[in-house]
Design a protein around this nucleic acid. Structure first.
Lengths: 245, 245
DNA sequence: CGTGTCTTTGAAGGTCCTCAACACTCGTGG
DNA sequence: CCACGAGTGTTGAGGACCTTCAAAGACACG
């Protein structure tokens, strides 16, 4: 599916934060309940269905995305089609669309991998009008620093881990973030295809498949369907990811 | 060389910014000349000789490094010795030491690759005491966002580029940042060994060497000594880096 | 129940790594 | 000034890992 959704004047727009019950949202905390009312045109809620793509060219460089629920994929694509998924963002995580001049030949896309609600936030007007602009900037700065730390960990993985370690690490991370605890282990719903996992880990879809089969054969995972992974023992996966293989 | 320098009470400490003639420093701008005087204990200048290592365990999580001059290497190391150089930071660039809890088993080091002066900045006390705390946070936020963008470009490279493309991109980037323009082309002094370049690009030193030889054979570079690279035509390198090969 | 898409599996090939030997560089000391 | 030696860089041969190409199998959707 390759459907783009318009953001301006779309009926998926909602009143900022009004319908959002996330009390942990750092943006909301920084603004306060009073501040929210003043900034209704700077925060916009968008719903995206699986496969829908956000057209980021319309956004100002100070835009921030915050995932309220669901999962959003951030991808970068070269002219010749080579592709990398920088992150699968889930509940509460932030993402920063790159300004166009930064990236040279790289195009950036955001695509929902499952039904997703997200907030599109324009920072500058928010900072101008809220009483605690410093708190807001500090919150965003802190989040950006964490993003840098995550990126550095991922670079180490991409540069120095085997395909097996990378996939084990990916499954482990995703299971921790979105897995459901069952009596028989952790159940993980993969909302993306093998190709996207490959794009995230710098591999080929066939390689993902092969390693999945090997994990299955070794009893590290069960694979009732291609999109459902059951992990009886998370520590076993972690051990593989962090170099026990 | 594996010399660590102590940071506290070292005679390499200098008065903050007093000896620094960098008027473009965003920290300085945000603080203003008056603010600088108040914050003398929050900014510390350090000099490091090639091979010297900063002991980061002593720094608060809100610490920021700013390279005044020279080059600082930021590296992450796994228990088993696998290593990645996240960046070679040069004049004016910022670096954020990771908080210890973030990185799990990853240890972080900073090492000068040539004589380097850097500022060690504690952000919190600075923000508390300066008049324009918002401006300071905004500056840092902006810098952190740029760092995220750089990391994402690097991840795409690590995940989806060939060894040849990665090395060409590295030389191109470094030549732009630190190369000297000569009549015969751009001269680039490599202050790091092949092993460190390999750690930056996720390769082996032998592979670096092989590709260097190939570039030399093709006339893309000259290599009078292992540490000196002459690039007659930067665009040729860029073409290789961005997928013309 | 058929069709298109995605996944899995197999075989062959390429890129990069590993191991090993040799060459070069540069600082030290005779 | 040259000789020496340790560290670093280069080159070669062989192999491992992952990719590429191809085909068959599974799944989802009408």
């Amino acid at each position: 599916m390759d459907v783009s959704i318009a953001v301006d004047g779309d009926d998926s727009d909602k009143l900022p934060c009004a319908g959002c019950d996330d009390r942990d949202c750092p943006i909301r905390k920084a603004l306060g309940e009073a501040g929210l009312l003043e900034c209704s045109d700077s925060i916009r809620q968008i719903s995206a269905r699986p496969g829908e793509r956000l057209e980021i060219s319309g956004f100002e460089p100070d835009t921030v995305f915050r995932i309220a629920s669901g999962m959003l994929m951030q991808e970068h694509v070269l002219e010749d089609g080579r592709r990398h998924v920088a992150a699968f963002k889930t509940d509460g995580e932030l993402a920063w669309p790159l300004s166009r001049e930064d990236n040279g030949d790289i195009r950036e896309f955001y695509e929902a991998v499952k039904p997703t609600d997200l907030c599109v936030i324009s920072v500058s007007p928010l900072a101008d009008r809220t009483s605690d602009a410093c708190g807001l900037m500090e919150t965003l700065y802190s989040a950006a620093k964490e993003e840098v730390a995550r990126s550095q960990t991922r670079m180490l993985t991409l540069a120095r881990s085997s395909a097996t370690e990378r996939l084990a690490g990916f499954l482990f991370d995703l299971a921790k973030r979105t897995g459901k605890q069952m009596k028989y282990g952790t159940e993980l719903k993969l909302n993306m295809r093998r190709e996207r996992i490959a794009d995230h880990l710098g591999m080929q879809p066939e390689t993902i498949s092969r390693i999945m089969s090997a994990f299955k054969k070794d009893g590290v995972i069960q694979l009732p369907r291609p999109t459902v992974v059951i992990i009886p023992n998370l520590q076993a996966l972690a051990a593989i990811a962090f170099g026990a293989a």
